[in-house]
Amino acid sequence: MKINDFTLIVGAAKCGTTSLFFYLSQHPQICPCKIKEPKFFSRDERWKKGFQWYQGLWNWDEQVHKTALEATPGYTDHFPITIEVVQRIASIDANFKFIYIMRNPLERIESALQHGYYQARVGKSGNGEDAFEHFLKSAIDKSKYAQKISEYYRQFPKEDILLLQLDDLKETPSAVMQQVCVFLGIDDSFEFTNLEKAHNKKNSYRTDTLWRKLTRMKRLQPMANLIPEQYKKQLRTYLSRPPRKAKDIPPTLTQKQKKEILRDLREDLHQLHWEYGVDVTRWGFEV
């Protein structure tokens, strides 16, 4: 099996990439990857498996599908990684289209901090302020949107790159999905459903919730199958609430920190607005 057409949702992290992936997966002409985030181009150990291994991650039907979809925000995480990822993609003899979705960088950074705290990657007792500052620096770097997408524009035609905003996906989801379909050259009359559902919410990736602990107990699985689906969903929501401890609560960004962040992002936001046509004034920023 050989797949020649791929659609990569390359970022940005915490900007709705998971929701966009699952929305698009509804389309009959799109073949979603078995692993939403394969990280093939960003992880050395996976890249070494070869392109044939990568192609095997889809249940591809050439009579039905027009493009193979995956979503790996790590393809635009940090600048050195982004350069290598783009070079690897460009070395493949296949057709690629890219979708990059953004949001207000201050909101993205605060969401990333919450993600880090909920995953216990920062903020645990003993980490201290240095760990927080290190995590914040990384979150700022990942919010330099223009820096990341510029590497894709250097290697690929601009008509193969689609820039989106999370606000539009939330406010006018049907219009955004139609825009994506036109971009991909697939049936844009297809009606997507459940576009109001946000995927990968903050508690979905925690491993310390009671729900996760119960699902790991194999002897309980037969009992779980007896629970009606509507009640199971309610039960999962309740049991997925994380234990609330003071150390789990990320600190709110201070006004001083916000000013420093915007100072660090000023040049990138200016480039994003004037060179790539992204209206950053919607986020309340002057250009």
Rank of each mutant, 00 (worst) to 15 (best):
Q234A: 08
L214A: 01
K218Q: 09
L214N: 01
M217K: 13
N203H: 10
I227K: 00
L210T: 02
A224C: 13
R219Q: 15
N225Y: 13
R216S: 11
Q230D: 15
K213A: 05
I227W: 01
S204W: 05
Q234M: 09
E229L: 12
Y205L: 09
Q230M: 14
L214F: 00
T209S: 05
Y205K: 10
L220N: 05
K232R: 14
Q230P: 09
T215F: 08
W211Y: 14
T215A: 03
T215N: 11
T207H: 11
Q230Y: 11
Y205F: 06
L220H: 02
K218A: 07
R236V: 02
Q234F: 06
Q230H: 13
Q234D: 06
L220V: 06
T215H: 07
A224R: 13
M223P: 04
I227H: 01
D208A: 04
Q234E: 06
E229M: 12
R206M: 04
W211T: 06
Y231W: 14
R216K: 14
Q221E: 12
P222R: 02
K202Q: 13
Y231S: 07
P228M: 04
L226H: 06
N203S: 11
R219N: 15
Q221H: 11
K218M: 09
S204I: 05
P222H: 06
T209M: 03
T209I: 03
M223T: 11
R212Y: 03
D208Y: 00
L235K: 09
L214D: 00
K233W: 02
P228K: 05
L214W: 00
Y205I: 07
T215Q: 11
L226N: 05
E229H: 14
R212C: 03
Y205P: 07
L214H: 00
Q221S: 11
Q230W: 11
P228T: 03
Q234N: 10
N225A: 12
K233T: 05
L226Q: 10
W211N: 07
Y231H: 13
Q221W: 02
M223D: 10
T237E: 15
N203Q: 09
T237Q: 15
K218Y: 10
I227A: 02
L226S: 09
D208I: 00
